[in-house]
Design a protein around this nucleic acid. Structure first.
Lengths: 210, 210, 210, 210
DNA sequence: AATGAATGAGATTTCATTCAT
DNA sequence: TATGAATGAAATCTCATTCAT
């Protein structure tokens, strides 16, 4: 979560990096590491507290419960993705193809420097969508709507084919990217991010038939 | 899991369908239902036993532990996929494109009639690959190798482009299909399997640029 | 709870006293002791299990949670009181005064040999009526209705005075008895049960004015 | 607790009513409300602080711990009751019967305007007498001694019967009143205080036999 | 093989109390 | 005095697994 800003429960920006520390942020970052390493269900609150260098009880000062922590992580990620995606969508200087490429870049750029966050992102979303769908971040849908609009624009301007179903297409790409991010996070040397990025851009535009 | 054969721990075919029932198979099928509905971590052995109509303790007569049940499910699925994929691969009457299409069909055909199995397949594999990678079914790799060979064949015969990285391609497709199967299993009307199948075949061959 | 029968969750009589033991009953009796000694809120499930000579988890095999145990205790007591009270009420051979005296005896007889049960009875009912009133045993109201009917009978036959409000009277007596049972349970020598019993019968009939 | 004086830890009268407020008193009054509503064991210090409009930590500036707050409440109540009872006892103008009636009135008058205080009084005394008997307010015993003396006076002057045991009698009445106060506090319309008062005075003097 | 009662380790969560400011 | 973030001990409850029958 490096140099990124994010918002706490009261929508105040958490940017403090002073000596006194920022426990809310420390805990969230620790949770990302722990969830990333062990998976949500095998992660213990005590371990998160230990990694965050706070007492167990302190976790509950900032987060309602274990699930809430995961919820905040996804809220952070999808909010970022959505806001950046919207900017791309609104950018009149970009062609449909460029917008789609930028969208791909956006995702890879966000995760490029944060393996644990990637692991949480690719592995734990199902849990939340199953268990507390009503509380799941609204940015998720908004992001996809944004992507959909870009594709529809491209179809209307005859750059993209009419043949495809947009809803299916968006899930197809996202599923593909998600699994590739997973592979990268587990074996960065075998699956270098830039190679993945290049291939994905090619696949989705041209397919593989010569 | 209907009319499919599968193998027990001693690699004996389980086909018995006598009156007394086949508890090993009953338990596995019950587990698929329960894991599919609640997710692996929220599934209780007692619930699986109840659905299978056996006593809790009986589950441990046939399976070492909870994880082992999941392992057997994936072993069954990937074994099926691998064996069928190999047949396609070896079929001299098919072109590379036809083989690739058949591979897609293979997957969709397997899951078409079994929503719970689909849900387990798309949601719970990560768990096993994280937690017991060394025990994970060898058919998984074999299946993908098979798919890879088909693509390489196509590249060599100039039907498929050299531009792509085969390892990345295979994960890209599989990730896309996996997420789409998930969507279908949760909302079959919104995501009809045949529409998905048709779109996927188109995407992977042609991409979306006109 | 000595030689009394009581019913388990499935309304089966629990009378077994064999070597194999009867854990459901053991736990309930242990709970009476522990609740009686420490009070409900300061009683630990682990302590109850220890006293009952079972594992902590076994408590939850038979009881939904801590509150459920208390609920079963009160259900047992009030069911006993109600059923015995009804018999008295229906007994045509007794005068109204004799019925009232028998009602008093009934209560004292039930608790006479069981100090811990008395302590639970006099100290912990508030908790349940506050926290889970909807689940509280129906025998409680039924018992009091019974007592009320006896008093009304007496009023109608001019043995008891019209001056009183029956609902107030019933709570007055019961409150008085409850506190006296408490005193007895804590200091049986200072407050001998038979002396209490004799006094109570006198008070409620004659008052103290000469 | 309205216009009543009470004493702080150093036996100084707390009467200050300045703008800045009187936190010690605010906290005690808040505690009465919170204990009354939730019961002692389900009341949280943080909630008391919130109701008192002070910080959590401030509670510990004035009270040693949670139990101490309850102790102060009972000390306040029994001190009031004792001092007023003593006045009645010493009043040479009253007959024994009048004194007894005044004692009843005393109790009802104290609680008449303060439902939460009543609830604490009738529900939480057991807790203290069990858990910290050595620290329980001395006014409790003194109040009862006072009542006892009044009854003994009556017996000696032949107004009250010799038949009764005074210790038992005092607990009987007090138990009855306590339960009735409870009923009133929970359903003031069903159990109007004056009706209760009238009935209690009648019962204890005349009993119910015509 | 089949059972299901019994186990007990373990994890989440709560909250009275402390203490640095 | 006053604060309220931080603490961490403690307790309830869960449930995979065992084992005597």
């Amino acid at each position: 979560m490096n140099d990124l800003l994010f918002l706490n429960h009261h929508s105040q920006k958490i940017v403090m990096r002073t000596k006194e520390g920022n426990k809310e942020k420390d805990i969230l970052e620790a949770a990302v590491k722990v969830f990333g390493e062990y998976g949500y269900h095998n992660s213990k609150i005590a371990k998160i507290a230990e990694v965050a260098n706070v007492a167990t009880g302190s976790v509950y000062v900032y987060y309602k419960n274990k699930e809430d922590i995961l919820l905040q992580i996804f809220d952070f990620v999808w909010s970022r993705l959505y806001h950046d995606a919207e900017e791309i969508y609104k950018n009149a200087n970009l062609s449909s193809i460029e917008k789609l490429d930028s969208l791909i870049d956006l995702i890879f750029d966000l995760f490029a420097s944060n393996t644990p966050l990637t692991l949480v992102f690719v592995n734990e979303q199902n849990h939340l969508q199953k268990s507390v769908p009503q509380k799941f971040t609204p940015y998720y849908e908004k992001f996809f709507d944004c992507g959909e609009h870009i594709v529809i624009e491209g179809i209307n301007s005859n750059v993209f084919t009419k043949t495809i179903d947009v809803k299916i297409f968006r899930n197809y790409i996202f599923g593909g990217i998600r699994l590739l991010l997973n592979k990268w996070a587990n074996a960065p040397d075998e699956f270098p991010l830039n190679k993945i990025r290049r291939n994905v851009k090619y696949f989705l535009k041209n397919g593989i038939v010569t």
